[in-house]
Each structure stands twice: as C-alpha cells, then as structure tokens.
C-alpha cells in the first residue's frame, strides 16, 4: 500500500486544492516546549515535503522524541505552529482545543521505540483497533486491508498471536502496520530499531526503506547513520532543543558546517 492508493476523500477544489498540492506536507514554525521550568525545545523550524523523509539525529536528551510527540499531539507544545497537510494551522500559544489536537493526531501516525502494542489484543486486533473503533470504518474492509499489510511484512501466520508471542522485530513490524492502517499522511518513527537485537534490525529498516521508496512522508529519529544516509532526503541535527543544522545527507554527514555536529558524528562513528 502506498500513500497514494488508499481511497481518501478527494482533495477539495479551489484554494484548498492548491494548498493540498503544495509540496510541504509538514511545516513547523518556532515550536517551543518546556517541562516545568526546563526548556526542552527552544524554537524548532521544520519543513517536510510530500513524499520525502526527514531524519532527526542528535545526542540523548536533545529533544528528538519531544519533537515527534509534539507533532503527534502526545505532548502539547507551548508555542509555535504546526501545519500538517495544509489543513488548519495549529497554534500553540494559546493552547489549541481538543478538537484541533485530534485533527493533528489524525494526520500522523507514530511508531514507538518500544512498540507499545496492546498486549491483550491479537496482532490483527492491534492493527484494526484504530480504523474500526476510532475511525468507524467498515470492519470487513479494514480487516482485509490489515491482512494485506500483514502479508506484506510476512506476518500473516501471526495474525491471531498475542504480542508476547512475537520477537521484537515482529512486534515492531506490527507497530508499523498498525500505523499504516490508520492511513496517515505522515509517519513518525522514534528510534524504531534501537530496542531490537542487532540481527533483527535489518528487517525493520528494510521495511521502512520500502515505505520511503513508495512515497510515504516520514520523520524518523534514528542513530543508524548509514540508514539515515540511504533513506533520508534530509537530515537535521538536533542539539539542546534546537535544530543546529540540516541538509542533504551527503552534505551533513560528510561536511557538517557546525562544530557540534562534527563532534556528535565523530562520537557516533568512533564510540571509544
């Protein structure tokens, strides 16, 4: 399934049409977030074009997860704007209403570092929960779509298994299928392979790469530089709650402009 082929409501005509066709799927301006008195995001600006992949890299505690969580509305930013898919721009100062937050959440789907599958539901139930219960789509139709997605990631036989019966790599693939089944415009990945045993990482990264080739728009937090280089259209280096620099993978990884980026890359490449 590619983002183009699920039957979505046709884009509205006129002005909205041209906005929906605009290259930028995600536009973030001046996003700020504090926990108590600690400023975690200073002022984040991001633009992700339709069908492209943005990789976020940066040291631990720099705010990468927080950026994703704000994009999905799991954390409420306290300043700035987020605009997904040219729908209403969300302003965070003052805080947006519940309904607006729900719209924001509807546009994107997240894949978690620790999968966060629902342990009391089978693989298939995990996947159809959102589309059937929340989006109120037809169960039979959703199930057929879910089975096709599971087939694609090689988990057809596991459809009636519970998450505890799966390996980490299989769970994460279910996590990805669960996100896809929501038919989001934007996929968010938070270190999707960092909880996996090394030999299971490959399957998951390969799947994400396939999704990128199919034209899904994604923001991926990752420590896998090689993967980021291959899959990302753009890499942004986050440190101390700001985007220190961003650019095409080959530029940023090979010739970082900022000293901080250089040091970070050096530490990743030569950990000891």
């Amino acid at each position: 399934m590619s983002p183009a082929d699920p039957p979505r409501p046709p884009a509205p005509q006129g002005v909205a049409q041209s906005r929906a066709d605009a290259p930028a799927l995600l536009t973030v301006r001046g996003l700020q977030k504090s926990f108590g008195t600690t400023r975690v995001l200073e002022s984040i600006d991001l633009t992700v074009n339709r069908g492209t992949v943005l990789a976020l890299i940066g040291p631990s505690g720099s705010g990468k997860t927080t950026i994703l969580r704000c994009l999905n509305g799991l954390d409420l930013a306290d300043g700035g704007t987020i605009d997904v898919a040219g729908y209403a721009t969300l302003t965070f100062d003052p805080a947006p209403g519940k309904k607006q937050l729900t719209t924001l959440r509807d546009r994107s789907a997240m894949v978690f570092q620790h999968y966060n599958l629902f342990p009391h539901k089978t693989v298939l139930e995990n996947v159809i929960e959102g589309p059937v219960i929340v989006q109120k789509r037809n169960r039979a139709e959703v199930t057929a779509e879910a089975l096709a997605l599971l087939d694609r990631v090689g988990l057809t036989e596991k459809k009636d298994s519970y998450p505890f019966e799966l390996s980490g790599g299989q769970q994460q693939r279910v996590g990805i299928v669960r996100a896809l089944a929501l038919r989001p415009q934007l996929l968010l990945f938070d270190e999707p392979t960092s909880a996996l045993d090394p030999e299971l990482v490959g399957d998951v990264l390969r799947l994400i790469k396939e999704l990128a080739t199919e034209g899904w728009t994604m923001v991926i937090v990752t420590h896998e530089l090689e993967f980021a280089r291959e899959v990302a259209s753009e890499i942004a280096f986050v440190d101390g709650g700001t985007i220190v620099e961003h650019g095409a993978p080959k530029d940023l990884l090979r010739n970082p402009r900022e000293e901080r980026t250089r040091q970070f890359l050096h530490r990743l490449l030569f950990p000891f």
Binding site: L74, A109, N116, F118, G130, V134, A179, L182
Partner: peptide, 20 residues
C-alpha cells in the same frame, strides 16, 4: 506507553480507559 499508543490511534481518554 499504552496510553500513548491508544492516543496515537486516535482514542479519547475514556475510550483508552475502557478498551486499553
């Protein structure tokens, strides 16, 4: 993480409670 996954798939607080 269970709350977050439920919110992520679009559930409200009460539905998250009752179903997840």
């Amino acid at each position: 993480g269970q709350w977050e996954a439920a919110y992520m798939v679009g559930m409200s607080r009460s539905r998250t409670l009752s179903r997840i």
